[in-house]
Amino acid sequence: MSSEREVSKMFVRYMQRVLRNERINIYRKHLRDVKETPLEDWLLEEIVEPSHLSDFLLTEDEVAHLESFIENERLANAVATLSTPDKMVLYQYYYSELNDVEIGSHIGKTSQGVNKRRRRALLRIKKAYENM
């Protein structure tokens, strides 16, 4: 009976080694297949040093002429009807992904004021777009 147990233990250890080695082989093969940096590594690099993000930010003068960055002519004309503060709020909300509180702290308004300005600006764009 003890020899059966010994054989059984030996078999289990052998199978554990086989499965471990197979897992390692699959992992190594996968590493050879992947030639790009995994998304997680890219995100970690961006968190540590988000250097390229500042390349795409618009200055206040560029935001004042936001319509020049829009390819759709009707939409560009509709956005041109907005005031510069309205364009700034829309740009910061949709492009910079700031919430109303953060935008309000930048421009010196309350979050409710920012929300109201954003909603009114969107309505103005919608009306101007529909009337063209």
Rank of each mutant, 00 (worst) to 15 (best):
M1D: 00
M1T: 01
S3E: 03
R5L: 00
V7Y: 08
S8I: 00
K9C: 01
M10Q: 14
M10Y: 09
M10D: 08
F11M: 04
F11D: 01
M15L: 15
Q16S: 07
R17G: 04
V18S: 08
V18K: 15
V18D: 05
V18W: 09
L19D: 12
L19S: 12
R20Y: 03
R20Q: 07
N21D: 05
N21Q: 12
I24W: 06
N25D: 05
N25P: 05
N25S: 11
I26N: 11
Y27M: 12
L31E: 02
K35R: 14
K35N: 04
E36C: 07
T37R: 14
L39Q: 13
E40Y: 13
D41T: 15
D41K: 15
W42F: 09
W42M: 11
W42T: 14
W42D: 04
E46H: 14
E49M: 12
S51G: 10
H52K: 15
H52M: 09
L53D: 05
L53N: 11
L53V: 12
L53W: 08
D55Q: 14
L57S: 11
L57M: 12
L58G: 03
T59A: 02
T59P: 04
E60M: 11
E60L: 13
D61W: 13
E62G: 09
E62N: 14
E62K: 15
A64H: 12
H65V: 06
H65D: 07
H65Q: 14
L66S: 01
L66T: 01
L66W: 08
E67H: 15
S68Q: 07
S68K: 13
I70H: 11
N72K: 15
E73D: 11
E73L: 14
E73T: 15
E73I: 15
A76C: 08
A76H: 02
N77H: 12
N77K: 15
N77T: 10
N77P: 04
A78E: 01
A78Q: 01
A78T: 03
A78P: 10
V79E: 00
T81D: 02
T81E: 03
L82G: 01
S83D: 06
T84P: 04
T84K: 15
T84D: 05
P85S: 07
K87S: 00
L90K: 06
L90P: 00
Y91N: 11
Y93V: 02
Y93M: 06
L98E: 02
N99C: 08
N99I: 07
D100W: 13
D100E: 09
V101N: 10
E102M: 14
E102G: 04
E102F: 09
I103L: 13
I103G: 00
G104L: 05
G104K: 13
H106G: 02
I107Q: 11
I107Y: 07
I107F: 06
G108P: 00
G108H: 13
K109M: 05
K109I: 03
K109G: 01
S111N: 12
S111V: 02
Q112P: 02
Q112K: 15
V114W: 07
V114D: 00
V114M: 03
N115E: 06
N115Y: 09
N115G: 09
R117F: 02
R118P: 00
R119A: 03
A121K: 01
A121W: 11
A121P: 00
L122G: 01
R124G: 02
R124L: 05
I125R: 02
I125P: 03
K126F: 06
K126L: 05
K127G: 02
K127W: 05
Y129V: 06
M132C: 10
M132G: 10
